[in-house]
Design a protein around this nucleic acid. Structure first.
Lengths: 354, 354
DNA sequence: TTTTAGCACTCTAACGCTTAGAGTGCTAAA
DNA sequence: TTTAGCACTCTAAGCGTTAGAGTGCTAAAA
């Protein structure tokens, strides 16, 4: 399997570029005319035939132009596309928007989805940052009506979790305050395992609360990402490949099946990599529902602490260059933002502060 | 303007029923055949002509069957549909699902959207409960790195808000604890206005924090509902009225324009009412984007304290009966759930607990 | 050896034409 | 007041035709 010739690479790139724009099979004459190629259509025709033999292009029918195959896209993404950076002005504009809404993670996530969709002209998905292995920073117990109390957990990394808990008998706010102080002292910086190890030593109210906390954290750690923010559906569903009513319906399934997205987001391993960004083309043989889709995924956040995922979802003829560079830019931007405003991630002992 | 005859009401109902199912204009013969009517097609034809004159039906073209007009739907919804309750078994099944995920408001909202979409065979939207006029229950300050602190607000009604705040100079956790205790004591049960009234009396750390709290609450009260959970898009976009690619795109705009949804949700005043449920048909002349849509809206929660909105969004030929009864059922179900598990909503002085 | 002009062939999508069928309104009889 | 009958209308589906873009192959030109 020899390397493609330079000219073949160029032609493959052009076919993909043209097809991404027109969504119709591209022929030899059209290529020559549109890109002022310095060769005849017959030459192009020969090269197209070669590329077809290699499995990078295919013909819908005998007398039609060529359409890239998944293999074609893969080759293109891995060897022919050098994701350029976004233009400087664009970068600055986007950064500015983010810095204007300081400190509100939810807004960031939403904005990221919006920007991603707009820049890539496709659908976007973004998950909020999720602590990889939750460690407690602070615990607060608050009295409510009757025997119910509200448990508020502040995790290292800045996430706040709340949970309502029913006790077997009523307690006063004072008891709660004491208990929360004790527990905070004991388990600051601890993760679920450490809590579980010391659970037998606890008793009374402390034990009840701790048990619930453990349960909550286990649940939280198990779910990779709760909400997935999606934007730009319209971009994608107006594409010709999804107008066939049946296709459209099946396509929407994908975007509503949050479990699938979570699954995807969880394994950012398969597929091509391009500068820290994952590219999944046509489901890569694993996800049948994605046979018609391409996915460009990146992650952001503080590795080992709290990370999120963001990505672009579009038809196979996605504009990969644009998608990859936008994902990459937003990855680093969000990471920077989080690093700047994050809670202290240092070691469990924070003696002087407490 | 005389009342419609009984027979006309029946025929109007049948036309609407048939049209909601088939989405094609319904003719006289079809009606007689399908519903075993005890009259001839000619008779039906006369009645159809009368209903057309009254503006309740229209003909796409001369030799086509009839299609309900918006006015037709309105008449039907306000006079001819008696939203029946859901079957008992269904109700029990649904209740069961909700009671299984006790105490997790977000999950409830998600489940509600899912159930609503499934039962109504249309798209659904649900907003989380939002306090109408936030009152503080508890305030907690937590040290982080450098001069940043995390402010956690627990509101009466159970909502928890968090915000990162940069101080001009560093403080210790002890100072923070004292401040939060003071502020909690002072402002428990207070709303924004009371806080603002007493702001001038505060100084130092307390003043800084309070200022931010006020700002945050103002912002929160202004936005009617942050997130809107949407489900069942697929149900609706596979409907024939939205297959024209241009229609589809415009339709998606609606579902992505959260601001529009919020606007809608804010004014649950226009349109027909059916047992506490609002029905908006074709945008009611106000919302141009909704000309092709019908919307069945209900609200839930504890009025005056925290309420949310839930609704069904579908084509004009929505199955109104089903939509209305499902919305109504879920409204009361969610309200009950919230009432059962809510934080104490009693008056500001809670002396014995604190 | 590579490129290109020329040519016969293929297939689709668009166009125009025809027609079956469902629907209508009207009139006159039951 | 209802209904049978009828002439009329309009759409959607089916069908042949055709323009045009595309192909592969061959042989000449570079």
């Amino acid at each position: 399997m020899t390397e493609l010739s330079e000219r073949q690479k160029i032609i493959l790139s052009l076919v993909i570029h043209e097809y991404t724009q027109t969504a119709t099979p591209v022929g030899s004459q059209a290529l020559v005319a549109r890109y002022n190629l310095d060769m005849s259509s017959a030459t192009v025709r020969n090269e197209l035939a070669a590329l077809t033999d290699r499995g990078f292009l295919r013909q819908p029918h005998t007398s039609a132009g060529r359409v890239p195959t998944e293999e074609g896209y893969r080759y293109f993404v891995s060897r022919l596309t050098r994701a350029s950076d976004l233009p400087d002005t664009t970068r600055r504009t986007i950064s500015h928007q983010f810095y204007q809404m300081r400190n509100d993670v939810e807004q960031w996530v939403r904005l990221a989805a919006s920007v991603l969709a707009y820049q890539s002209r496709a659908a976007s998905l973004v998950t909020p940052p999720h602590p990889e292995h939750s460690r407690l920073k602070h615990l607060e117990l608050i009295a409510t009506r009757g025997r119910q109390i509200l448990v508020v957990l502040v995790m290292i990394g800045g996430e706040v979790r709340q949970r309502l808990l029913s006790l077997t008998e009523p307690v006063t706010q004072e008891q709660l305050s004491q208990s929360s102080e004790r527990l905070t002292q004991l388990f600051q910086g601890a993760d679920v395992n450490e809590m579980r190890a010391r659970l037998p030593q606890m008793q009374g109210l402390d034990a009840d609360v701790l048990e619930w906390v453990i349960e909550d954290l286990l649940q939280a750690d198990a779910i990779p990402a709760g909400e997935v923010y999606v934007d730009g559906l319209a971009n994608v569903l107006s594409e010709p490949e999804f107008t066939g009513s049946d296709e459209a319906r099946r396509s929407l399934r994908i975007l509503e099946e949050r479990s699938l997205l979570q699954d995807l987001v969880a394994r950012t391993s398969a597929g091509n990599t391009q500068g820290g960004v994952q590219v999944l083309i046509g489901g890569e043989g694993t996800w049948d529902e994605l046979r018609q889709w391409s996915l460009v995924l990146g992650s952001y956040g503080m590795p080992g602490l709290a990370t999120g995922t963001l990505g672009v979802l579009g038809p196979l003829r996605l504009s990969y260059g644009r998608a990859i560079s936008t994902v990459r830019f937003l990855s680093t931007l969000l990471s920077d933002l989080m690093a700047e405003t994050s809670l202290d991630e240092s070691s469990p002992n924070m003696g002087d502060l407490n």
